[in-house]
Protein backbone atom coordinates (compact mmCIF):
# COMPACT_ATOMS: atom_id res chain seq x y z
CA UNK A 1 0.00 0.00 0.00
CA UNK A 2 1.24 3.45 -0.83
CA UNK A 3 1.43 5.91 2.03
CA UNK A 4 1.15 9.64 1.45
CA UNK A 5 4.26 11.79 1.80
CA UNK A 6 2.84 13.36 4.96
CA UNK A 7 2.27 9.97 6.59
CA UNK A 8 5.81 8.92 5.71
CA UNK A 9 7.22 12.19 7.09
CA UNK A 10 5.42 11.82 10.44
CA UNK A 11 6.31 8.13 10.62
CA UNK A 12 9.99 8.75 9.95
CA UNK A 13 10.24 11.96 11.97
CA UNK A 14 7.52 11.72 14.57
CA UNK A 15 6.93 14.96 16.50
CA UNK A 16 6.55 15.06 20.28
CA UNK A 17 7.19 11.43 21.10
CA UNK A 18 7.43 10.85 24.83
CA UNK A 19 5.64 10.94 28.13
CA UNK A 20 4.59 13.56 30.66
CA UNK A 21 4.10 12.82 34.33
CA UNK A 22 0.56 11.47 34.50
CA UNK A 23 0.40 12.35 38.20
CA UNK A 24 1.04 16.07 37.54
CA UNK A 25 -2.16 18.07 38.13
CA UNK A 26 -1.50 20.06 34.94
CA UNK A 27 -1.33 16.91 32.80
CA UNK A 28 -4.22 15.10 31.17
CA UNK A 29 -3.67 11.58 29.77
CA UNK A 30 -5.72 9.78 27.16
CA UNK A 31 -5.15 6.08 26.40
CA UNK A 32 -7.32 4.75 23.60
CA UNK A 33 -7.52 1.77 21.28
CA UNK A 34 -6.74 -1.83 22.10
CA UNK A 35 -3.72 -4.07 21.55
CA UNK A 36 -6.00 -6.73 20.10
CA UNK A 37 -7.07 -4.31 17.38
CA UNK A 38 -3.49 -3.45 16.56
CA UNK A 39 -3.74 0.22 17.62
CA UNK A 40 -3.07 1.87 20.97
CA UNK A 41 -2.50 5.61 21.37
CA UNK A 42 -1.40 7.42 24.49
CA UNK A 43 -1.77 11.19 24.20
CA UNK A 44 -0.83 13.57 27.01
CA UNK A 45 -1.43 17.30 27.31
CA UNK A 46 0.05 19.82 29.71
CA UNK A 47 -2.38 22.64 30.35
CA UNK A 48 -1.49 26.14 31.62
CA UNK A 49 -3.46 28.00 34.29
CA UNK A 50 -5.08 29.95 31.46
CA UNK A 51 -6.42 26.69 29.99
CA UNK A 52 -4.02 26.61 27.03
CA UNK A 53 -2.29 23.39 25.96
CA UNK A 54 1.42 24.19 26.43
CA UNK A 55 2.82 20.80 25.65
CA UNK A 56 1.66 17.53 24.12
CA UNK A 57 3.34 14.13 23.92
CA UNK A 58 2.34 10.82 22.40
CA UNK A 59 3.26 7.18 22.20
CA UNK A 60 1.55 4.91 19.70
CA UNK A 61 1.50 1.19 18.98
CA UNK A 62 0.16 0.77 15.48
CA UNK A 63 0.67 1.12 11.79
CA UNK A 64 2.29 4.10 10.07
CA UNK A 65 -1.05 5.87 9.70
CA UNK A 66 -1.77 5.54 13.42
CA UNK A 67 1.65 6.92 14.30
CA UNK A 68 1.26 9.76 11.81
CA UNK A 69 -2.24 10.66 13.05
CA UNK A 70 -1.09 10.93 16.64
CA UNK A 71 2.10 12.81 15.76
CA UNK A 72 0.07 15.28 13.69
CA UNK A 73 -2.48 16.02 16.40
CA UNK A 74 0.22 16.74 18.99
CA UNK A 75 1.43 19.50 16.65
CA UNK A 76 -2.08 20.82 16.08
CA UNK A 77 -3.24 20.98 19.69
CA UNK A 78 -0.21 22.81 21.09
CA UNK A 79 -1.15 26.41 21.81
CA UNK A 80 -4.87 25.69 21.54
CA UNK A 81 -7.41 26.04 24.30
CA UNK A 82 -9.09 22.85 25.53
CA UNK A 83 -12.24 23.83 23.72
CA UNK A 84 -10.45 24.43 20.40
CA UNK A 85 -8.51 21.16 20.72
CA UNK A 86 -11.72 19.29 21.45
CA UNK A 87 -13.16 20.48 18.15
CA UNK A 88 -10.55 18.73 15.98
CA UNK A 89 -12.37 16.24 13.80
CA UNK A 90 -11.11 12.93 12.47
CA UNK A 91 -12.13 13.95 8.96
CA UNK A 92 -9.73 16.89 9.08
CA UNK A 93 -6.92 14.59 10.20
CA UNK A 94 -7.73 11.99 7.55
CA UNK A 95 -7.90 14.64 4.85
CA UNK A 96 -4.62 16.27 5.87
CA UNK A 97 -2.80 12.92 5.79
CA UNK A 98 -4.70 11.60 2.73
CA UNK A 99 -5.60 8.43 4.60
CA UNK A 100 -7.23 5.68 2.52
CA UNK A 101 -10.68 4.42 3.68
CA UNK A 102 -9.17 1.37 5.40
CA UNK A 103 -7.10 3.71 7.60
CA UNK A 104 -9.85 6.13 8.65
CA UNK A 105 -10.06 4.40 12.03
CA UNK A 106 -6.53 5.74 12.79
CA UNK A 107 -7.79 9.31 12.53
CA UNK A 108 -10.84 8.46 14.63
CA UNK A 109 -8.54 7.05 17.28
CA UNK A 110 -6.48 10.27 17.29
CA UNK A 111 -9.65 12.31 17.79
CA UNK A 112 -10.68 9.98 20.64
CA UNK A 113 -7.23 10.36 22.18
CA UNK A 114 -7.50 14.17 22.31
CA UNK A 115 -10.94 13.96 23.93
CA UNK A 116 -9.78 11.34 26.42
CA UNK A 117 -6.82 13.52 27.46
CA UNK A 118 -9.09 16.56 27.88
CA UNK A 119 -11.56 14.47 29.90
CA UNK A 120 -8.77 13.27 32.17
CA UNK A 121 -7.53 16.83 32.71
CA UNK A 122 -11.03 18.07 33.46
CA UNK A 123 -11.58 15.28 35.94
CA UNK A 124 -8.57 16.61 37.85
CA UNK A 125 -10.00 20.15 37.70
CA UNK A 126 -13.76 19.87 38.27
CA UNK A 127 -14.13 23.66 38.16
CA UNK A 128 -12.22 24.19 34.90
Amino acid sequence: MAYSQKVIDHYENPRNVGSLDAQDAAVGTGLVGAPACGDVMKLQIKVSDQGIIEDAKFKTFGCGSAIASSSLVTEWIKGKSLEEAGEIKNTTIAQHLSLPPVKIHCSMLAEDAIRAAIRDYKAKHPSA
Binding site: P14, V17, S19, L31, P35, V40, M41, K42, K59, T60, F61, I67
Partner: peptide, 16 residues
Protein backbone atom coordinates in the same frame (compact mmCIF):
# COMPACT_ATOMS: atom_id res chain seq x y z
CA UNK B 1 9.39 0.27 21.04
CA UNK B 2 10.62 3.66 22.27
CA UNK B 3 7.45 5.01 20.67
CA UNK B 4 5.15 2.26 21.96
CA UNK B 5 2.88 2.87 24.97
CA UNK B 6 2.63 -0.90 25.45
CA UNK B 7 6.39 -1.30 25.66
CA UNK B 8 6.51 1.57 28.18
CA UNK B 9 3.83 -0.10 30.31
CA UNK B 10 5.50 -3.48 30.15
CA UNK B 11 8.80 -1.85 31.27
CA UNK B 12 6.90 -0.31 34.20
CA UNK B 13 5.61 -3.74 35.12
CA UNK B 14 2.02 -3.00 34.17
CA UNK B 15 0.14 -6.08 32.98
CA UNK B 16 -1.34 -5.04 29.66
Amino acid sequence: RDMSPLWEMSRQGIDI
